[in-house]
Structure formats: structure tokens, C-alpha cells
Amino acid sequence: MTESPAISTNASTSSTKMLVAMVGIGILCALLIVVTFQGTLPRIERLRAEALAQAVFKVLPGTSQTRTFFIDNSGQFTEMVAEETAVTKVYAGYDQQGQLTGVAVEASGQGYADILRILYGYQPQSQSIVGFHVLESKETPGLGDKIEKDANFLANFEQLDVSLAEDLKQLQNQVVPVKQGEKQHPWEVDGITGATISSRAIGDILGASTMEWVPLIYQQRGNFELNRDSQP
């Protein structure tokens, strides 16, 4: 009994000390993180924007300038003049004569490791996907990240058929992933052996996104034309 008071005081002082230590380190760490975040944010955002801008040129062959569009309240594609966040944007590309080369659409979905963000180029004239780029992925290096490097896989997106059905409201054939070497139709995405899940994910993301966007873009393809008055 004689020792118990000593123990309790001991415990109370040490728990204060513990609290102080943990809170102190917590504050220090939070400070470090916030400083780094603030310090790197502008550069990270610039790099991301650059990557996106470059990607638009990449997925729409022959593009020399791009414009950003979004869907306004009336459901029409409108060119975005001021910077707005929190709206879904699409990027129209034009060649040197001012002709529409296509519309780049961003899409995302669950990959093997995390959410995959991709950008694909849709060409209304040929009703097909003409380009593809992975914006963000955490797929396993060396395996899943083949979706960005595998030449055979990327060849899928040079001319992927997304023709509309006659009612112009849905696709004639939905884009579907198939096993490597089993591609038989122009709307199928040939997979990668060794990156089955990641390559299937790309096919599924494209399938879902094109179902939603391609009919919209095709119906309003006139909205993307550059103003005739700006033409010489």
C-alpha cells in the first residue's frame, strides 16, 4: 500500500509526458507535410496539366491546337472560357486548317491496384477511337503497367470501332475486352497475357465511357466546329 501513491503519480506524470510527446511530434509532422504539400502543389499541378495537355495531342493524331469544352446546364457542349473546376471536361483538337481532329475524353475506373485514369481520343468522322493514353495508374510496375507500353495492346486504339447504332443513341457494338490473340472484331480490345486484369480494366473502362460519351459527342459534333467566321 505504501507504494501505490508513488506509482499513481509516476503514471500521471508519464502520461502527460506521453501526450506532450505525441501531440508535439504530431504537430511537427503535420507542419512538415503541409509545408511540403504547399511547396510542391503548384509544380505538381503544372506537371499534371502539362501531362494532360500533351496527352490530348497524343490521343488525337494531327492536332495542332486544342480547346476545352464542358456540358452546360442545357446539356449542350459549350466551349469553356474561364477556368472552372468540378465539371466534366472534354478536349477538342484541331489541325492546322482548323478542322476538328477529334475529341479527347477522360475516363476512369477500377484497375488492379487502384483507380486508373485514362484519356482517349474519339474521332466523329470515322466513328472510332484513334488514340489512348494512361494518365494515372498504380498498376504493378513491370506487369500491369504494360497497358502503357505494350505495342500490341496499344495497337488496339489506333482504330477501335465505336460506330453508333441507327438511332444514334447507343453504340452498335459495345467495346469489350478479349484475351490476347482472340481479337476478331474491330470493337474488341485485345488483352495482355501477364497483365490480364489491368488490360481488361482498360477495356471495361472504355466500354462504359464510350457508351455514355460517344452518342453525346456525335449528336452534337457541330458544337465542336470552330466558328466559321474565324475561318479565312
Binding site: 509544380r43 506537371l47 510496375p141 503497367d145 502503357e148
Partner: peptide
């Protein structure tokens, strides 16, 4: 953050 700021490509491959 630092790797993201250095290169998007590198960050992508290390993920």
C-alpha cells in the same frame, strides 16, 4: 509529393 513534383512519369512507375 517530392517524387510527384520531380516527374509524373517516375511517380507513375513507382506508384
Amino acid at each position: 509529393y517530392a517524387i510527384q513534383a520531380i516527374s509524373v512519369e517516375l511517380h507513375k512507375s513507382l506508384g
